[in-house]
Every structure is written in C-alpha cells, then in structure tokens.
Design a protein around this nucleic acid. Sequence first.
DNA 1: TTAATCCCTATTAAGTTACTCGGGATTAGG
DNA 2: CCTAATCCCGAGTAACTTAATAGGGATTAA
Lengths: 149, 149
Amino acid sequence: MRISTRGEYGVRAMFDLAMHYGQGPISLKIIAERQGISEHYLEQLIGSLRKAGLVTSVRGAQGGYQLANAPEDVPIGDIIRTLEGPIAPMDCVDIESSSCQQFNRCATRVLWERLRDSMEKVLDETTLATLCQEGMKLQAKDDSFMYHI
Amino acid sequence: MRISTRGEYGVRAMFDLAMHYGQGPISLKIIAERQGISEHYLEQLIGSLRKAGLVTSVRGAQGGYQLANAPEDVPIGDIIRTLEGPIAPMDCVDIESSSCQQFNRCATRVLWERLRDSMEKVLDETTLATLCQEGMKLQAKDDSFMYHI
DNA sequence: TTAATCCCTATTAAGTTACTCGGGATTAGG
DNA sequence: CCTAATCCCGAGTAACTTAATAGGGATTAA
C-alpha cells in the first residue's frame, strides 16, 4: 500500500513549481537539484504531467516548466492519478475500468469502496496551496529549509 | 496504490472463517475452494495470520482453522497489517520504522500523514462482523451467493 | 552559432509478486 | 497400529514492476 517514487517525486516537483508560481519557467535541472531527484527520471514524470495539462513548458534556452493553474486549483489527487493511475486499493473498485462483474455478490466490495473514497477525499481536498502554506511555515522557522525531504 | 493479493485473499479467507464462526475448524482446502484461491498460496498467508494470533489451527485429520476472536473484534486493519505490512502510503510516515529524519523540514509530510490516518480509520472501523452483515444481505437476495468475488 | 533546454524512445538491473514444489509432523477414525 | 487427511515449513521461479540510465533529436535565447 505504498505510493511509488513516481507519485512522490511528482508531488514534490509540483510543490516546487507551486512555491515559485508566477516567477516564469523553472528548468528541470533546477527542480531536480532542489528536490534531489534524477533529472532524467523526473523528465519522464513531468512529461506525463505536461500531457495531462498540469504544467506547461517553454522550450529552448531559458526555458522550463510552470504550473498550468494556480496552486489552490490543483488537487494532489490530480497529480497522483496522472502518475500512479486511478486511486483504488483494488482493481474491482477502479472507477475507470470497473472490471468486477460480480459486484452484486461480493461482500468485501463495500470495504474497498469506503477505502477508495476516503483516500480520494484526502487527496482531492488537499491542494498545492495547502502544501505551500505548510512550506511557508517551515521556511519561517528554518533558514536551511530546502523544499524537500 | 493497490493492495496485493496477499491482503485481498487474506481478507476473503478471514471473511469465510467469520461466516462460519463457531462451527469448528474449517480446512484450508474448503476455504481455498470456496474462495477460488490457490491452496498452497493461501497456506502461506494463513500461516502468517496464525503467527499473528488472528486464527488458531487444529492439526491432523478433521483439522483446520478458526478465528481466534469473534468477528466483531477483528478489524480489517489487523489483517492488512499482518499480510501487507504497516499501513502507510510512504515509508516516511510508517509508524513502525519512522525512518524520515527530516520530518521537521518536509512540507509534504502532512499530506501523507492525513492519507495514512484516513486509511487506518476505515480499515480499523470496519470489522469482519461488518462484512458478515453485508454477506447476510447478499445471501438473503441471492441463492447462488458464494462468499467471494 | 552555440549552449541551454525541452522532448522522445529504448534498454536494463534489481526487486517484488504470486505463485509452485516437495516433503515433514500430527491426529481422527477404522 | 495404519492410513488418510490435514497442518507446517522452506526453497525455487517465471512474470511483472520499478526506478532508473542512455542516447539522441528539436527548439530557442543570447
């Protein structure tokens, strides 16, 4: 029941962009350095985020990435769904595929639905702005704050 | 973010035992057949459940397994923790290991803690008795109900 | 023109998952 | 006591996933 590094790094990269929202494009190199993530690997992840419309890119020298929307309009759930696939503890309660044909006979289904809903609730109610508030608090009390783990 | 078959099969096996609570030991063969799970594989899982004190075994002919406690006293969280490890979306918020030394600098930590807590809440508030109630409802309206997906 | 940057596809080592296989120990019933 | 049913245990393994790495092409500011 762990989120993979795709989701983890994705959230951290998006948080980094959110902390610099409105300051023009930030290069992959900077984000990767600040967050301590492999640049090449992050490139793949941010590529997915771009295709999903969560970030926009500026090509060429002095180019980089920036948030497509304001931090308060970006639920973490959108980042996770883009990088990790649908939020669902089991295939049978995956809204997108909904492969379980026996749902009307399965007593454990209610459990997985409840779990899925509670996970989606947290991830969709928390936005990048929420994380930024937390980031500001940390910045305020610690000079060496680095935006990352 | 999926639960593996270990957790899935474990919950289904425990649910099966709960539906037959107080009827003496049930053999692995019966459970595996009823739930459509490989007998040898389930043996490994139920071995862990036994070591964790969730089921008791009776050896020899006519032996089998039974719940160590009444269904209403068995939170699903206990089954999941036994078979999947600690409930935590990320290592850094795993209560048992708590490996993240930078927790006072990490802005995303709050998010993972919230997610962990909401998952634990659902899994610990739902018990085998909850699933049995659901099972009885299904049984009532469908003769071919089989206790499984 | 050059260096910085985004963009894309392929490959790969290590780890995890979901089993299978084979055999030993225990016990109810005949 | 014998036998079949059952629990118990550890080793092996094929397929899949993860977390990268590698190498190069396209675009653009200076």
